[in-house]
Design a protein around this nucleic acid. Sequence first.
DNA 1: ACCATTAAAATCCTATATGATATAGAAAAG
DNA 2: CTTTTCTATATCATATAGGATTTTAATGGT
Lengths: 265, 265
Amino acid sequence: MTTNDQELPSFARLVALEDARPAYPQSLVELAYEQLLSMLVTMKIAPGAHIGIEALARKLQISQTPIREALTLLEAQKLAHKIPNVGFRAASLLTREEIADLFELRLLIEPQAAAFAAERSDETALRALAKLSGEMSLAQTGDELAYAQFAEGDAKLHHLVATASGNRFIAETIEGLHVHLHIFRFLFKTNAPSEAVKEHETIIDALLARDPVAAEAAMRAHLHASRQRMDQAFAEQERATAAGDVPGGEGRSPRAPRTRRRRTV
Amino acid sequence: MTTNDQELPSFARLVALEDARPAYPQSLVELAYEQLLSMLVTMKIAPGAHIGIEALARKLQISQTPIREALTLLEAQKLAHKIPNVGFRAASLLTREEIADLFELRLLIEPQAAAFAAERSDETALRALAKLSGEMSLAQTGDELAYAQFAEGDAKLHHLVATASGNRFIAETIEGLHVHLHIFRFLFKTNAPSEAVKEHETIIDALLARDPVAAEAAMRAHLHASRQRMDQAFAEQERATAAGDVPGGEGRSPRAPRTRRRRTV
DNA sequence: ACCATTAAAATCCTATATGATATAGAAAAG
DNA sequence: CTTTTCTATATCATATAGGATTTTAATGGT
């Protein structure tokens, strides 16, 4: 309840953003931030790529100052990295080990957050949960659209749990972690979310029943399964790259740009 | 091991900063950030106070642009709050309930981080731990200086555990949480750290012995005790304020500045 | 052929200036 | 005397320009 719902753009919004520029950003900093976040999540700016301020200023038709501030914001979220007197780079894609670390921390926080949410949710939170449950039961299954809906629902559910925990610090921490997952939601579209939908239902049922023990267990199970699915996706991708294939866009080379001249976004 | 030791200014450094301007900040943004952080932690900028950009620019003898960037960074850490077209304010002092939430989250993460540290520490981490143990055993007891040394040691210990956990996300999260505690370290100087020193020793011993179970238990006990000490300090302070006394500086009024004209830092 | 030094270009970083917004105070109307 | 409206001031937000640093490329030497 402490965090503001409106300031967090949804996954679907992020992906569609740069075409239809929304009207609501009140300042140019917000606009630049939204645009940059969208480009980062959809890998239109490749991980590790150099982010030129001047070029972006021309592209977005605004000055350099708000872009610098937006980049500073992204740097604080570890989505960009600043090297003084050199410039900003997009953060490297998380490695398989870092994803493992990320889930290690999520498993420390989110199950307990779900338990707290089961105990402390107020009426509005429960209504939002029920509404989400309805949306997710209507979702398609199997095709590409299905995955987009699943990703959206997953993001919403974890967001609701985070805020419903009633603990501002828990909520902020979870949100900060999930930002890093958005890019993988975009990258690993192949995963069949059929099992995951059931996990979501189990969590929501426990929350609506105000059962903290069940909510914690359900969230823990969901995170374990999610971690395993993600690790599997990593394995498949490594298999593909080993075969000489270059996956989505620039790929996941943690190194600096190749000898080819760097793309000065 | 993922995080960089050098980029985090120690508590002692923060308090002494604004007089002796250190040479290492490479950019004016870093300089402004360090200065602002120091002023925030030592309450030279009161919680909730308005932070005027122009005045700061004059005071620090630099331009407004790097100050805006530094404030943006602080805003991301929730140490400052921005109201569009109005300006930045220092974050309000955490309430008693928020401190409770903070410890609730710490208790989810730090004990497990200690266990990880016991398992995963490398040689350099162990050496740093041993060195810290030596420093802390030499500390004074009882007077004001004692508390400063204790606060410094406490910050160092938790920082070492965070990094030694070997998990970048755990480390970053812990560090982000501890920033908010610095101001209370400065505010509650009265606490007798005699018991706390023993708790620290217990943690360090467990870590050096590479005993994860003992390390987790020791950290958990330390956090419980620390939470209780802090809550006690809150109670004492509330008792004092109820008696008409005005504690350190501006006090902890969550409201906007009084009718007296606001201090445009 | 390879390395070092130097010069040039590009980019970032900082400073200053202009425009936009909100706030405070005064004047006027009810 | 209270309330409202208007004006003036202060501050924030953005744009633009100049200075500093890094990187790249070229040239000359080993």
